[in-house]
Design a protein around this nucleic acid. Structure first.
Lengths: 240, 240
DNA sequence: GGTCAACATTGGCATAGACCAATGGTGTTG
DNA sequence: CAACACCATTGGTCTATGCCAATGTTGACC
């Protein structure tokens, strides 16, 4: 059942298994031999070594820094996502969360944002673009669009920290339902710059549409999570 | 803000953009030029062309068949996942779903399965391993473990088709809550064989734990979905 | 007319080598 | 002793090339 598979298994994949064995028992952060050293040790080319290492990096099992070396990666962070906000979710798991605001402005909605928020194109929307950090590490790039212009939004957000807390406490908007769409994507130059990952790294791209009790769209968000460091959990109970 | 990015953008990434332009307007299935032809046209090496194409394949924008060529891929399938079963979800979207049973047996639970189902190790569990098809196309490999041994399970499943329908109608077990864990992974030789995808293709690996109204684990499932063809949607209403 | 063998085409894997870019250490210098 | 220039090391990108494996077509043969 598996011998014909073994026959067809390419060399770089065998090397991947070899490296996993080599990594076993090493603590996260430990440097493994250089690409050139591995190529010589396993009598192969650096190209083949790099293909093996690249996949292990994409899987979150190795990390690498140009000029420094390749090292065993820390385990994935599991993030429980419910009706709540990023910061609440993190706090519930005793994880230190933080966020950097890249942009907070009022703009005219484009076709995509309009469609999701159920607005006519050209309406005013508030945009909030942030980097999400867990334990000090950049984990996601997130852009949220909210219908209309929210008075004193910036100062409220600065004080409360959490978007959902501001919506509830300052504007009386309560999220009653969310719809998350999850898909895979590969990191481009923008993602590389913002998240400090490498080109082509797998991402979990989540689009969230949140509605209030009346079913009116309250928020539409695009989040790009690092697929190599992140695990997404959602709980659903009966009654939906 | 973006000029320094452009400066650092590697050639294979520029080529990716170039290919996206070339693909625009082409119908799914249309062959694009061969790797060797593209290498010559854009005055680069085949290696670089392959790196660009490989990422587009991983993103689900291109597909390729050895000995045949590289073609524009069909759009992703959106799959809504709720408390319901795979077949119910698909039917709700007017998609033709099907599944192939690879294994259906009774076995002794290992450490991992025991832990998730809340059993002592070495207990009897029923295993159901299937390939899930949408519109005739393999979309996921799925293995479900259920506690104990279910009488007349095979014939019931053959008749009903849906696992959840069998649980409800034959055994009176109603799923009250599910917890899904989503993460990215890369396809290995097994996945390649079972799903007809290529080595290193991104996967969405979902672990689902389903419980009944009393909170007792009813089913633990590992599903590997093709990340290039699949989009995962979950809806959550308030009250959770 | 159908069957099968041979062959050209196309993607898949791997090699060897070159140069660039980031990092970190070394040693000089103020 | 601190700051800085230099340099070796290491990963990042790219080239050029060869052979293998799957596919599909062509043409010989029955």
């Amino acid at each position: 059942m598996s011998s014909d598979v073994a026959h067809a298994t390419p060399k770089y994949y065998l090397l991947k298994t070899e490296l996993l064995g080599l990594m076993a028992g090493l603590r996260p952060g430990t440097l493994i031999p250089t690409e050139r050293a591995l190529a010589e040790k396993y009598a192969t080319s650096r190209t083949t070594v790099r293909q093996a290492i690249s996949e292990l990096v994409a899987e979150g099992k190795l990390g690498r820094i140009q000029g420094h070396g390749t090292f065993v990666a820390p385990p994935k962070v599991t993030h429980v996502r419910q009706l709540t906000s990023f910061s609440d979710d993190a706090r519930a798991q005793r994880l230190r969360s933080d966020s950097t605001v890249l942009a907070l402005d009022v703009m005219i909605s484009d076709a995509e944002v309009s469609a999701h928020l159920g607005l006519d194109q050209g309406k005013t929307v508030t945009r909030l673009e942030r980097i999400r950090l867990i334990e000090g590490e950049p984990l996601a790039h997130e852009t949220a669009w909210l219908p209309g212009k929210l008075p004193r939004f910036k100062s409220s957000l600065a004080k409360a920290g959490s978007l959902y807390a501001v919506l509830a406490d300052v504007y009386g908007i309560r999220i009653a339902e969310v719809e998350d769409t999850v898909e895979t994507a590969l990191a481009g130059p923008e993602d590389v710059r913002r998240l400090g990952i490498e080109m082509g790294a797998p991402l979990l791209v989540v689009h969230r549409l949140a509605r209030d009790a009346a079913g009116a769209p309250v928020e539409w968000t695009r989040s790009a999570f690092r697929g190599d460091r992140f695990r997404f959990v959602s709980r659903v109970k009966s009654g939906n």
